[in-house]
Amino acid sequence: MTATAPGRQLAMVFDLNKCLGCQSCTVACKTLWTDAPGMEAMWWNIVNTMPGRGTPRDAFSHGGGYSDGEPVPGRFPSLAEYGEAWSFDHAATFEAQGERIPLHPTGRDGAPPEWGPNWDEDLGGGTYPNSYYFYLQQVCANCSRPACLEACPRDSLYRREEDGIILVDEERCHGYRFCAEACPYKRIYFNPVRAVAQKCIGCYPRLEAGVAPACVRQCPGRARHIDYMENRQGHPYQLVHEWKVALPLRADFGTEPNVFYIPPLSPPAFNERGEFDEANPRVPTEYLRELFGPGVDAALATIQQERETVASGGQSALMDMLISREWNDLLGPFTENPAGLDRPPAR
C-alpha cells in the first residue's frame, strides 16, 4: 500500500547547535509512553553522540528505505543491538555492609551488556586537538513516503489525515515486523509481550489538546521547533524552505522525512602548527554531508553569516527564530500548558 498525502503535515526542526545531550526529551517520552510490559527497551526518542554508531548499533547500515524508488531490503536489529533493558542488583550494592560493590548492569543473559542506547556517549570523532562531537536527536520522522507503512502486507500502519502522523493499528498488526525492516532509521520497535510493532506516536493526544509533544516541551535547550509545514510563517517552513538551513537526515534513504536538522557549526580546526585552519571546521563538512546531504555547505554558510551579522550589532530574523527568546515561539500552535488540562486517571 502507498501512503496518501495528509491534509497537513506536522514537521519538526531540531537545532544541533543547541542540543545539550541531556536526554530530557528521551526521559520525557519514556515516562509518558513506554512504561508498559514489553516496552522496557523502547526509546521512541533517542539522542546519540555523533560521530557514533548510533541506536541501534550502526544505526544507518541495516537497509530499508528506497533506492531509485524501489524498496531496499532491510533487517531488524536484535534487542542486544538496540540495547536491552538492563537489570541492576540494587540489593547487593545497598546492603553491602561496608563492602564496596559497584552497581553493575546485566543483560537478559546475566552477562554485562556489550551495547546499549547511546553506548558511545561522548567518544566523538577526530584526534586531539581536533576532537569533536555533537548530539543527534531522533524520533519517528513521519516520512512522506513511509517505508514502514508501505512494507506492511496487512495495512496495519496508517497516516493521520489531520497531521501526517503515522500510527500502528495494534488490532490489525500481527507482528510480522516488515515495517521495522523497511524503516531505514530503525525507529520501529517490537513489543514481544503483545507481539505487535510500536513506535513514536508524535504525542498525538497532546497535539489534539494543543500541547506540544513531550520531547519538544521538555527540551531545556529549546532545540526543537514544531508546526505544520503548511504554515508559511511557522518555524519549520521558514527554516526548511525559506532560509534553507534545516535539512533532512539521510535524505538518500528516499523516505522524505518530516524531521529536519540545523547542522552543527564548529570552530576552525587546528593545523599541524597549532594555528587555526580557517578553511576547515572542527566537525568535518564531509561527515555532515553524509548525514545531511549536499545542502549542508550552504546551510552552514547562511547560519555563520547571520551569526556574524548579529555579532556586529545587526539584526537577523534567522537568529531570532533559532534563539526563540519567547519559549512559545518554538511550539507553533501547540502552546497549551498541559498542567492546566483535565487529565485522565493514572493507569
Binding site: E70, P73, F178, A182
Partner: peptide, 8 residues
C-alpha cells in the same frame, strides 16, 4: 501484497 516483501 507488499512490494517490500516481494523485493526483499
Amino acid at each position: 501484497p507488499s512490494a517490500y516483501v516481494r523485493t526483499a
